[in-house]
Simulated scan of single mutants.
Amino acid sequence: MTDDWQDLIVGARMSVDQQFADRVQASGLSRPQWGLVMTAVEFAFENADDPETARIVADTSSLEHVLPEMDNVDQQMGAMGGGGGGSSGGSGVVGGIKDALGIGGGDDDHEELADESRELAQAYADQLQAHLEDEGRFEEVRRAAASE
């Protein structure tokens, strides 16, 4: 019963994924990088017991595990000539040249990437909640989360 409320939002997530694609494209993350972010992010309810303050939040505590791979996937896409979206510090052709020269890169770039990933993940959670509210399903999902 742990994923009960999560099961209720599968269709809503598919809709939000489509709506959110433009936001990802406008960000500094490529689509493959965003895909990795979404594998590391879990959605949770904050204050599920309180209908007035309940909200969906993005738990990004596992994000650090995919950050190194985010650089790799973007470099691989760049090498194949596909980038597919923005690139963030240390990734892509310019990032590869900087890395080769020993300029930039490192923890600052990872921190910027992590910050942007966290912000986007929470924006996605907010949009998911708004979608559920618009569909009149948020209260049902909140109750399911509160009962877990």
Rank of each mutant, 00 (worst) to 15 (best):
residue 50 D to C: 06
residue 20 F to R: 06
residue 54 A to Y: 02
residue 143 R to I: 07
residue 88 S to V: 09
residue 135 E to S: 09
residue 76 Q to D: 09
residue 135 E to P: 01
residue 34 W to L: 04
residue 80 M to R: 10
residue 110 H to I: 15
residue 102 G to A: 10
residue 82 G to A: 12
residue 46 E to T: 08
residue 104 G to A: 13
residue 127 Q to E: 06
residue 63 L to Y: 04
residue 61 S to H: 14
residue 64 E to F: 01
residue 64 E to L: 00
residue 27 S to M: 10
residue 50 D to F: 03
residue 22 D to T: 14
residue 52 E to T: 02
residue 114 A to F: 07
residue 101 L to S: 08
residue 55 R to Q: 10
residue 131 H to G: 00
residue 111 E to P: 08
residue 43 F to W: 08
residue 74 D to F: 03
residue 105 G to E: 01
residue 142 R to C: 02
residue 56 I to S: 07
residue 20 F to Y: 03
residue 74 D to K: 12
residue 96 G to N: 05
residue 66 V to T: 05
residue 40 A to E: 04
residue 47 N to Y: 05
residue 118 R to V: 13
residue 22 D to K: 08
residue 49 D to I: 00
residue 105 G to T: 12
residue 97 I to V: 14
residue 134 D to L: 02
residue 130 A to H: 06
residue 18 Q to M: 10
residue 120 L to V: 13
residue 69 E to I: 02
residue 82 G to I: 14
residue 30 S to E: 03
residue 137 R to G: 01
residue 37 V to N: 03
residue 84 G to M: 13
residue 29 L to W: 07
residue 60 T to P: 10
residue 44 A to N: 11
residue 50 D to R: 01
residue 98 K to A: 11
residue 42 E to P: 01
residue 135 E to Y: 03
residue 31 R to D: 15
residue 83 G to S: 12
residue 121 A to L: 08
residue 66 V to S: 05
residue 144 A to P: 13
residue 131 H to W: 11
residue 105 G to W: 04
residue 147 S to K: 07
residue 65 H to P: 00
residue 91 S to T: 15
residue 64 E to P: 00
residue 101 L to F: 13
residue 110 H to K: 15
residue 73 V to Q: 00
residue 49 D to R: 11
residue 52 E to C: 02
residue 137 R to A: 08
residue 58 A to P: 12
residue 77 M to K: 05
residue 139 E to G: 04
residue 61 S to E: 06
residue 75 Q to C: 10
residue 52 E to P: 00
residue 102 G to R: 09
residue 19 Q to T: 12
residue 67 L to M: 11
residue 82 G to Y: 13
residue 135 E to V: 00
residue 106 G to V: 13
residue 62 S to K: 14
residue 42 E to V: 02
residue 131 H to R: 05
residue 76 Q to Y: 09
residue 44 A to L: 13
residue 38 M to D: 05
residue 144 A to H: 05
residue 84 G to Q: 10
residue 125 A to F: 11
residue 79 A to F: 04
residue 84 G to Y: 10
residue 60 T to K: 09
residue 102 G to P: 11
residue 62 S to H: 09
residue 43 F to H: 11
residue 19 Q to G: 03
residue 110 H to L: 13
residue 55 R to N: 05
residue 85 G to N: 07
residue 106 G to P: 10
residue 103 I to N: 05
residue 137 R to L: 12
residue 128 L to H: 05
residue 105 G to M: 03
residue 120 L to R: 08
residue 42 E to T: 09
residue 128 L to K: 03
residue 48 A to F: 00
residue 81 G to S: 10
residue 78 G to T: 13
residue 28 G to K: 04
residue 53 T to A: 03
residue 49 D to C: 00
residue 119 E to Y: 15
residue 147 S to D: 11
residue 134 D to M: 05
residue 127 Q to W: 06
residue 82 G to M: 15
residue 48 A to S: 06
residue 35 G to M: 07
residue 145 A to P: 03
residue 68 P to S: 07
residue 91 S to H: 08
residue 91 S to K: 04
residue 130 A to N: 02
